[in-house]
C-alpha cells in the first residue's frame, strides 16, 4: 500500500484539501495536554513518536531508547511504518491504522487518543519523512497541535499540516488503551489487527482485543471465534466450545463457527455432537475447500 501511495504522491496534488471540507464550527478546541513529550535525538522521530502514543495507551515502560532498538534502521536513518506497527504488538498493544481522512484523525483526538502521523516535510520528489503525534486541534485559529521532533508544542496551520500529511497518503495510527477499541475502528479491520496479535501468540493482548470488540460490536461473532481459537490453541477445549457455541448463536449462517465447534467437541471426545456440528458446517458451505468436507476431516483425525 505504501508503495502505491508513493506512486500516487504526484497525483494527489490536484485533489482538494480535506480540511477545507470540515465544518469547523462543529468542532471545539481540544488539546491532550497530558500527552508526554520525548524530545527526539537525531533521526529518532519514530521511537520518540511511538513512545508517546504507547505511554498514553498505558505502556509505562515505553521509552525512545528501548524502542530505538526495535524500529530504527541504521542505514536508512529512520523507521518504517510496518516497524511501528510491529513494535506496538511487541508492547502487547493493538495498533490500528486510521482511514486516510482528516475527520477520522479528529474523531480519535476527541476520544482521547493522540494520533501518530507520517509527514513529508519536504517535497514529493525529495522527501523528508517525519513521524509526529497530533495532540490537539483548534478550529478557531485553524491549527493542529503536535508533539514533534524537538518541539514540545508545535502548532501548524491546517493547510501546512495537511500538505505534509497528504504526501504520506494521510498515514496515521492510534494505539488505544487495553480493553478499548479505537473510536473510528471498523469491525473487519479491527479484527484483522487483533488476529495479527493472536497469530503471534500474544494471548493476553489478543484476548483483551477480542473482549473489547465484543463490547463495541456485540452482534459480530468474530470476537467469540477469536476467543474460542485462543482457548483451543491453549488446549482449553471446553472453554473453546463455549465461545464457538456463542458464535453459532450470533451468526448461525457462519460455517467457520460450526466447523471449529466440531473440533472443540471432538477434542473432548464428544464424537456424536462433533459430527453433528461438522455436518452442519458442511451443509452451510458444501463447496468450500475446508468446510465442504468437515465430517471427513474430523473422522480422519486421531
Amino acid at each position: 500500500m505504501a508503495v502505491f501511495s508513493f506512486l500516487l504522491l504526484s497525483a494527489c496534488t490536484s485533489m482538494p484539501m480535506q480540511h477545507e471540507q470540515l465544518e469547523l464550527s462543529d468542532y471545539q478546541a481540544i488539546e491532550l495536554r497530558d500527552t508526554p513529550f520525548f524530545p527526539q535525538d537525531e533521526y529518532q522521530c519514530g521511537p520518540a513518536a511511538l513512545a508517546t502514543v504507547l505511554q498514553v495507551s498505558g505502556v509505562s515502560s515505553a521509552d525512545p531508547d528501548g524502542l530505538r532498538e526495535q524500529i530504527y534502521i541504521p542505514d536508512r536513518r529512520g523507521s518504517l511504518q510496518a516497524e511501528l506497527l510491529a513494535a506496538s504488538r511487541r508492547a502487547d498493544r493493538i495498533p490500528y491504522v486510521l482511514e486516510p481522512q482528516f475527520d477520522a484523525l479528529l474523531t480519535e483526538l476527541y476520544a482521547g487518543n493522540p494520533v501518530l502521523v507520517l509527514q513529508n516535510l519536504a517535497l514529493a520528489r525529495w522527501p523528508q519523512w517525519h513521524y509526529a503525534v497530533v495532540i490537539g486541534f483548534n478550529p478557531e485559529s485553524g491549527t493542529v497541535i503536535l508533539r514533534s521532533g524537538t518541539n514540545e508544542r508545535e502548532e501548524l496551520s491546517l493547510r501546512y499540516f495537511e500538505y505534509t500529511w497528504r504526501l504520506s497518503d494521510y498515514w496515521a495510527m492510534v494505539v488505544a488503551p487495553e480493553g478499548i477499541t479505537p473510536a473510528t475502528a471498523e469491525p473487519l479491520r479491527y479484527f484483522a489487527a487483533v488476529a495479527a496479535v493472536e497469530q503471534q501468540e500474544r494471548w493476553q493482548a489478543a484476548k483483551k482485543g477480542y473482549t473489547a470488540a465484543a463490547i463495541t460490536w456485540p452482534h459480530d461473532a468474530t470476537s467469540a471465534m477469536g476467543l474460542g481459537n485462543i482457548a483451543y490453541q491453549q488446549q482449553q477445549f471446553a472453554l473453546a466450545e463455549e465461545h464457538y457455541y456463542r458464535a453459532t448463536e450470533l451468526e448461525p449462517e457462519q460455517p467457520a463457527a460450526f466447523f471449529n465447534l466440531a473440533w472443540a467437541l471432538w477434542r473432548q471426545n464428544k464424537q456424536a455432537e462433533a459430527l453433528l456440528a461438522a455436518e452442519y458446517a458442511q451443509g452451510l458451505a458444501p463447496e468450500h475447500p475446508l468446510y465442504g468436507d468437515a465430517v471427513e476431516r474430523l473422522q480422519q483425525a486421531q
Binding site: Q44, R76, A82
Partner: peptide, 21 residues
C-alpha cells in the same frame, strides 16, 4: 501484509527520521 510491503525494498519505503528541516 506488512512483510509483503517490505519486500518491495526498504529503500523504496518512507523512513520517518527528519529531526529538523
Amino acid at each position: 501484509a506488512e512483510v509483503q510491503q517490505l519486500t518491495a525494498g526498504i529503500e523504496e519505503l518512507p523512513a520517518g527520521s527528519a529531526a529538523t528541516v
